[in-house]
Design a protein around this nucleic acid. Sequence first.
DNA 1: AAATAAATGTGATATAATTCACATTATATT
DNA 2: AATATAATGTGAATTATATCACATTTATTT
Lengths: 215, 215
Amino acid sequence: MSKAAETLNQEHLSFLSCNKAMVQFGKGDSIIKQGMFSTNIVYLRSGLVKIHITGPYQEQIVRLVKAPSYLGLPTSIGDKINQYSVTSISDAEVCFIDMVTFRQLLKGNELFSYEIIHELCHNELEAIRRCANRTQKQVRGNIADVILEFADHIYESDHFTLPISQAEIGNLVDTSRESISRTLSEFHRDGIIRFTGKKIEILNKKSLVLISQTG
Amino acid sequence: MSKAAETLNQEHLSFLSCNKAMVQFGKGDSIIKQGMFSTNIVYLRSGLVKIHITGPYQEQIVRLVKAPSYLGLPTSIGDKINQYSVTSISDAEVCFIDMVTFRQLLKGNELFSYEIIHELCHNELEAIRRCANRTQKQVRGNIADVILEFADHIYESDHFTLPISQAEIGNLVDTSRESISRTLSEFHRDGIIRFTGKKIEILNKKSLVLISQTG
DNA sequence: AAATAAATGTGATATAATTCACATTATATT
DNA sequence: AATATAATGTGAATTATATCACATTTATTT
């Protein structure tokens, strides 16, 4: 449950849990499409998604988002046109909340609206940090980061199955697909991870953290 | 005047115009310092500042901000510790608004709070776009972008004086100081800009826009 | 005005990482 | 099961850009 939703009373909660407007998505399905008109706030109840945006040359994965979380808040509030896309990378449950309804919620519950502000602040900071990190680190460091993000934040286990291809990981950390392949092999060779297919197991987390900080 | 402040009534406005808590800063002065404790919302009344953050290897300029604008909103609301630094790059006037006061404002004026949300959404989107742009474009394109930003958004003239050094521009667009120097010379040689010292004049904007899109 | 420090210009060299090209597995699809 | 399609592995070559090294110019400070 997101922090913002915690502050709601039961009436509002039932509102948000929105059984009627809940939609199931399969892996690979498009949830939000950049350029499309939208009048809904999107809330990810379960699953994992990628946020991606059309850059000057290619589509770029901005970040991965795990439920529970709002999706496309900036796009929904700031604009009628979606400013980026969201695509599911696992099965996912999504609630679509009417924008008018959402605004009423904000009006009626100032704590809720404060929490939304809080979440937006956090997102902006994270976006800034991610960007500084990616541009300053080189390939090895960025790949170490992604592996650690999967382990520590997304799957909360040192043993997991990658939900995206190496090409997509490359896209996410501004690197070529080939560099991802080579670096993963390198980590494997050095006994830092074990990987077979899309399954990854972290064998030496300290090394990985070190590479994240140093490489 | 920022959009958020427009929605305020006179009582609130006088609050924000905050003649008592207004501080003058000179070029190079630190307005917000990363890691420092803060209980103030900072509002930039006039002047130009740079937002910079400590990355894994070096301090990095995130973006330039022109008055009028709030500064450090995400840091002020999300945290008690400043998450990035703000340094003035021209003379500037800044208001410090007590956090408690600001929250009262949010409470009492839902339109205002909605506008703050709006601003935060916009900032997040901009952060995402900037990042995708910078990583996808190469040096020439990014430098063209900076020049266009100065001309179109900051000074609103094709003839201006750079408020930062080439080293800082390099830092802003993730490039070396030398590459900035070489590229500016190149643009000069090709008749796209004229530049002497820190003065820049855009001679061929179409070319610059093309380089921004293509290079 | 001299002296010192900071900013800029520019060639030569080094390097990380991309691109290309193709082999090899996996994974879908018929 | 057979075939087509997508994903991955890996060497060799290329490339954009960084780094180094120093000259020169511009600002600051004494």
